[in-house]
Design a protein around this nucleic acid. Structure first.
Lengths: 160, 160
DNA sequence: GCTAGTTGCTTCGAATTCGAATAACTTGCT
DNA sequence: AGCAAGTTATTCGAATTCGAAGCAACTAGC
């Protein structure tokens, strides 16, 4: 089963565009905030969310390995942007919370970040296109999230 | 200038979906061919193109740093999947060509690769959606490629 | 044909990433 | 209770990445 020409073209355009966008976003964040893209995503998730999250919840949101998250959390904590504390319910879990300094930094780089995304991604799209793209990618994203984890799906309790 | 809610939702869905897809593709390539995503892209580009490419041409296509490409080309050559030779016109350029073994490997992992992309990305999309997505992303990609290069940093005075 | 500047690639060091192994804790089963 | 199995986070080593510096070859100007 192979992909037809149209699918291939769509696939390549999608991956290349995102790759280019990622690259530019990375540079903007580095220049204006000294942050990597991953660090910004972590901070933004913490800043936007209601309260503290555990390491696992954070990793799930960013598609990151746990060990990589430990490393980044160490850097962010050393920089005073987040704080780690024990979790009330579960002794082995860690609650990660953003500090005021972290919030300030996110606020500081956010305009530039938004500007890069706007000028690169949304500039060539009409308003209706943005909605269309959003609808499609939300559908795709939800579909991907619902797929069984690749390779040897550990048996889960029956559907819930 | 900030992004509105619809733009944000579109942006997040796009990045997350591609991230998930990347992750699964990476696993499939590793399992079935012992290749990283980057290595596969390089081989695929060489296999599909007309003939040999220079290192720079290869790097441009994959948005990779030159030094990273040198490293990967070294690995691929050691594995016998590509060959590096002098370039006719320019003594300092390197012509990179794929070997038969490289072609065979690409052919071997291609079906699985296509299957992952199909089941994750195209499964939830109707035919018309694929065309729509392709049209939009091609437009975005072309727009991004046409933007002034990121490296032209106007102000470089922060010497710290 | 010489010298300065540019281009193509590689080498080097530092930072980041992942997976496997480990430690601490929780849950389930008998 | 007590032991086995699962979960959560970290540490460790190996692989990969990037940018800066270095080298060799080309180009332009004199």
């Amino acid at each position: 089963m192979t992909l037809d020409a149209r699918q291939l073209g769509t696939y390549f355009a999608l991956m290349e565009a995102v790759s280019l966008l990622q690259h530019h976003v990375e540079q903007q964040l580095r220049e204006e905030g000294g942050l990597s893209s991953v660090q910004f995503q972590l901070l933004a998730r913490l800043a936007h969310g209601p309260g503290a999250l555990t390491m696992t919840e954070l990793a799930d949101g960013v598609v990151y390995s746990r060990s990589g998250l430990t490393y980044q959390a160490g850097l962010l904590e050393k920089a005073g942007l987040i704080e780690r504390g024990p979790s009330p319910g579960d002794e082995r879990a860690i609650q990660v919370a953003i500090t005021q300094k972290g919030r300030d930094l996110v606020e500081h780089v956010l305009p530039g970040h938004a500007e890069v995304v706007r000028s690169m991604l949304f500039d060539p799209l009409a308003e209706a296109d943005v909605e269309t793209l959003g609808t499609l990618m939300n559908r795709v994203r939800d579909h991907m999230r619902a797929l069984p984890p690749r390779s040897a799906a550990p048996r889960r309790k029956r559907s819930e």
